[in-house]
Each structure stands twice: as structure tokens, then as C-alpha cells.
Design a protein around this nucleic acid. Structure first.
Length: 260
DNA sequence: ACGTGCTCCTGTGTGC
DNA sequence: TGCACACAGGAGCACG
């Protein structure tokens, strides 16, 4: 699930549940999710410390330590967090466990495509990993520059983390649906007015999705997102179609979204 | 710089 | 029912 809205929901979840408690134990249950750190080093860097705040950039989450630096999380395609107090089983597919005294925080990944590691600073992490500006923070003129400079399909541009961080397959579709733009439109074919519209819809879709806890069942009827399947209908009543863009299945409404 | 196709994983749905 | 295969809200890689 994890695009920007999902990760923001996890960030708030962790913020609400897991801060300012001593990390009494760390277990790594799938070593392959570790990035740039051994299990031994991760454990020794975290044990006895506390998480004091949680940030996000794009699809990455950063839990700040009271010592210094951050633990970073990437949720892959299936990741989420689960916190509980007292006894209780960790969920299936828990790949890392943080013991917080009598409480627990599990990093759960069905597919082991997520990442967990350490970084000194978010800025350094962003630049080392070539991430573009966060989609919720970017201003309109920087956004315009990105679309104007790109020769790719607009959907690919929106999903390219080097250009813009946070948007994936699902939300790029929703943004383009709300902007009434066909996913295979070239970014460079969008005029100023269209780019404005994509920008505004990007912001409103992401904000709405966060308010709705990134849960499709809670989203407005005007959203296409809950109808991402064969045979489903657009809010306009038309048939939803799909097409591959950058190897990903894109859902769109041919009646609402015409090629530029 | 772009698209395509493959890879990493695991689970579910589909068609024969 | 069994089995093979496609596909899934991500991303890095090689190749053309």
C-alpha cells in the first residue's frame, strides 16, 4: 500500500504510539531487508535509546533517535507497522521487532521488498539516494520545471522518485483522473494550465487520501481509486480501462481522460 | 533520458 | 482439484 499517503499514516501512527520509550530490544527476522547496516550494528545502535520523533520524505519514514541519527523505513509494496502493548503475537510476516519495554512495534512486510537502515540525516539520505522533493512540500514553480524538462509520459514523471518523491502507481492514476488527463500524455505536451491542474490535484488527492487514512473505502465518491479493477465503472458511469505505463497497470476512464 | 523487461519476494486470483 | 501463470500500491538493473 505504501505510497506517500500510506507512509504518512504510518508516520502518524508511530508518532502516536512509539515515541519516548526505551528500546529494550531489537530483532531482525529477515536480514535481507537491512540496507547498509548489519543486524549486530543496528541492534547496538538502537538498544537503550528512544525514538523521539518521526519524519517522512516521499515513501521513506525516518524515526529520530535521542542519541543522533535516524532509523529509516521503506515499506516496499506490502509494508505496514503494528504496535501493541503487553503480551500478544507479532503479526505474520513481521520482519523486524522493536521491544519498547512492555510494548512492541513490528515492521511487517509480506513480500520482503522493504528496507530498514540507519542514516545520519534526512538531507544526506535524500541526496545520497537521489530523491526529488517531497510531493506534499514541493512548490508550483519547481513542479512546473520538472514537468517541462521531462520527455516521459506524465504518469512516469509523477512516479519517478528522482524527480518527485512519494507518488506511485495508485496515486498517479488518481491524480491524472482528477486532472482529466490520459496517463500516456507526454509531460512536455502539457500546457501551463494543465500543469497547474495536475499540481492542484496532486496536492488535493494526497491530502484527501491522508485524511481518509489512505483507506479506499473512506474516499470520496468522485475518486477512481476504489474502482481499480476490470469491469469497474468510473464515477461518470463509463467503463474503466487499463493500459501499461512503465510496466505498471494504469487504470483510467477513456471518457474522462483524453490524450492531449 | 526514455521505455521495456527482468529481478527480488510472497500470496492470491485466473484459466485450463 | 491441480497446476501454471499472471499479477500485485516498489525499485534497481541491463539493454536498445
Amino acid at each position: 500500500m505504501p505510497e506517500l499517503p500510506d507512509v504518512e499514516v504510518y508516520r502518524r501512527y508511530m508518532d502516536k504510539t512509539s515515541l519516548n520509550q526505551k528500546i529494550t530490544g531489537v530483532k531482525v527476522l529477515a536480514e535481507r531487508i537491512l540496507q547498509g547496516v548489519s543486524e549486530k550494528d543496528l541492534v547496538s545502535r538502537l538498544e537503550g535509546k528512544q525514538f523521539v520523533s518521526v519524519d517522512r520524505h516521499g515513501k521513506y519514514m525516518f524515526a529520530k533517535l535521542d542519541s543522533d541519527g535516524y532509523a529509516f523505513f521503506h515499506f516496499g509494496m506490502t509494508g505496514y507497522l503494528k504496535y501493541w502493548r503487553g503480551q500478544g503475537q507479532s503479526p505474520d510476516h513481521s520482519r523486524a521487532l522493536f521491544e519498547l519495554g512492555n510494548s512492541h512495534l513490528a515492521f511487517v512486510l509480506q513480500r520482503k521488498l522493504g528496507k530498514l537502515g540507519l542514516t545520519e540525516s534526512i538531507d544526506k539520505f535524500v541526496s545520497d539516494n537521489d530523491l526529488g522533493p517531497d510531493a506534499l512540500s514541493i512548490d508550483k514553480s519547481s513542479f512546473k520545471n520538472i514537468l517541462n524538462r521531462s520527455n516521459a509520459y506524465v504518469k512516469s514523471t509523477l512516479m519517478n522518485q528522482k524527480h518527485l518523491a512519494g507518488i506511485g502507481n495508485i496515486y498517479s492514476d488518481e491524480i491524472l483522473f482528477q486532472a482529466r488527463i490520459h496517463p500516456k500524455t507526454k509531460s512536455s505536451d502539457l500546457d501551463d494550465g494543465k500543469i497547474d491542474k495536475v499540481f492542484d490535484k496532486m496536492k488535493s488527492v494526497l491530502k484527501t487520501a491522508i485524511e481518509d487514512k489512505a483507506n479506499p473505502d473512506e474516499m470520496p465518491d468522485s475518486f477512481l481509486l476504489p474502482n481499480r479493477k476490470k469491469g469497474a465503472h468510473c464515477p461518470c458511469g463509463g467503463d474503466v480501462k487499463s493500459v501499461k505505463v512503465s510496466g505498471r497497470t494504469s487504470y483510467f476512464c477513456p471518457k474522462c481522460q483524453k490524450p492531449a
